[in-house]
Design a protein around this nucleic acid. Sequence first.
DNA 1: ACTATACAAACTAGGCGAAACTTGTAAAGT
DNA 2: ACTTTACAAGTTTCGCCTAGTTTGTATAGT
Lengths: 190, 190
Amino acid sequence: MTDSGGAREESSVAGTSRRDAVLESALGVFARYGYRRTSMEEVARTARISRPGLYFLFESKESLFRAAVTQALERDLAAAERLLADQGTPLRERVLGAFDRWAGRYVGPLSNDVSGVIEQNPDLLGAIVVTAPDRFEALVTKAVEDGPFPETATSVVRTLISVSVGLKHQVETRQEYRDRLAVAIDLLVG
Amino acid sequence: MTDSGGAREESSVAGTSRRDAVLESALGVFARYGYRRTSMEEVARTARISRPGLYFLFESKESLFRAAVTQALERDLAAAERLLADQGTPLRERVLGAFDRWAGRYVGPLSNDVSGVIEQNPDLLGAIVVTAPDRFEALVTKAVEDGPFPETATSVVRTLISVSVGLKHQVETRQEYRDRLAVAIDLLVG
DNA sequence: ACTATACAAACTAGGCGAAACTTGTAAAGT
DNA sequence: ACTTTACAAGTTTCGCCTAGTTTGTATAGT
């Protein structure tokens, strides 16, 4: 458990480090092939880095996976928060945008493998995967409470989340997901 | 394709034949162990019939499975229809009852295997599994159209079906499924 | 309208060793 | 702050085989 938690700063642009770039491409590979079937070799090749170099950045395959998932979750959560906060657009559209961003990535092809790893390592990677959906729910609920029916916000958002989960199993394309979720939002968010 | 389609009548009580009883217990076994891992031997034993006798009733394992699934679907559809037609109880409760009956069986442990067989034999067993959900949707939509907002009935029911699918993946118990679906129905069905 | 017994053909499971691949680390280099 | 090359230990995959199970049918019986 060394993984680097200390201060590391130099090279590249302000907020985005080399590390972050590797994390991003690694997530793409994990999402495409699943955790078990992606090798560090493949991740390294995709990130245009050597495999030992990858081990220099991340202690192990597991810690790399954990970091990649965590980063994606945090980023999508932040994006959802930003979309929801924009008072310029109507509530319905803000909520739709937040779900689209959140579910598009989090419930995507990645989720199968995330849940697979969770089942086998309940302790590892566990915290973020449980808390992130809760945080998303809280965010959306807060936004809906500023709408016309604050008292039903909790139920409405819970129901919308169920719709979102269901749609992921029913539809083929992201566009269809958006369209049908928009209908549900129109019905549920006054 | 012999399977018996002609006129067969005698023994046992009016509507329920020996065949039906075998079908019912066969469904239980299939639901418990999945299609591949249940043997005709096991089905025969559970139905208290000899294995050759089972082959006398059903041409093959596949046709038995198809018949069992079809029977269950038709029965649950009929039950949903009956529940929805009862003008004595409020619309909300009728809709909840219909979903509970429908999703409880159809989306239950059986569904994994049904979809598995569908994937491998798209033609066989295909028709009923596609049409039955459509028929269920039509049934509920018709009932909701008699409610206060007939013009949104189609969207409302589609959304409720998504909620139902989502809940199946979110909740652990049938009771929790009922409770949360009831909340959604209250929000969506005026 | 079945039961009991039996059988061929097909499929499935389990074992097992060899080959291939993967992880994680080391060492030397730039 | 990495790269290249190299390597041990572990895991996965593969091919092949054998043994066991399962399907579907037949035959004789009640």
